[in-house]
Amino acid sequence: MTGEQLFLQQLLNGLTIGAVYALIALGYTMVYGIIQLVNFAHGEIFMIGAYFGLSLFACFAAQAGAAISIGVLALGLIVAAAGSALLGFCIDRSAYRPLRKAPKLSALITAIGVSFVLQNTVMLIYGAQDRYVPSLAAAGSMDWMGVHWTAMQGLIFAVSLFLMIGLQWVVYRTPLGRSMRAVAQDPLAAQLMGISVDRVIAITFLIGSGLAGVGGVLFGVYYSTINFHDGYLTGLKAFTAAVLGGIGNIPGAMVGGLLLGLLEGLGAGYLSSQWKNVIAFGVLVLVLLIRPRGLLGERVGDRA
């Protein structure tokens, strides 16, 4: 492999995982934009999405280890999206909503608690070991420009692009999106204008968690394994992506996700994969230091 090929290959691999980060980052950024909470449990919702998919695939796979058809994968994505959305909704309703007026710190600590509960519940149900996720049947791959392209990568790009465009449309072109933006700007004023703030927050959790669920299934199928620990690290990276793009900013989360994936892919190719995880945290620290509002974020004033 020539240097150029290695570069392109890492670029492609990085962008693929970056698309997944972007899907998860959207949930962080939407929730933060609306209630200024770092939803620490969001990474777990992503991970549980993967397990939802896994359970569904288990029903369809003729024997363990068999591949799944594209139809089953699509069904898995839908089930995971629905399941994760519902889970996110329930978490907000039962854990965060009672603390809406409490100090931010209480909500953040609660979120850490929720994250622990979800992680360990999954561990108790599915076990602590890596679980094998069936791969896509008849998924071809091709070599072009000396780079190995797989159909799964194409699928990840297609699905995430579709969802991101859809979300963009919802937020900027529909009445629902308008209420969401209104609540993000000034919840009190929005309420006075007759917008049900609680409903908008609930919908935000539904959408954000659903996207994370889809990301989970894609992640699982792409890497062929899933573990109850995966949510924590991937979630943190997605959060980094959201901060990188400018937290609270939806296009920012997409750009941040892709960029972080890229940096990580190149870092893994040229440094060593052990240091891969340091890259994400290093980026996080650097962004917060140099440009805390992120790449696309607006200046955030002191909300007194």
Binding site: Q36, L37, V38, K104, L105, L108, L236, F239, T240, V243, Q274, W275, N277, V278, A280, F281, G282, L284, V285, L288, L289, P292
Partner: peptide
């Protein structure tokens, strides 16, 4: 020093990041 001006919940995540960096560095 570098992160002290970062506020509240951001600080929580950055310190978490530093914690992980220290562990990864120690491991490697």
């Amino acid at each position: 020093l570098p992160v002290i001006r970062v506020r509240g919940d951001y600080l929580a995540i950055v310190t978490l990041g530093f914690g992980e960096i220290v562990r990864i560095v120690v491991t490697n």
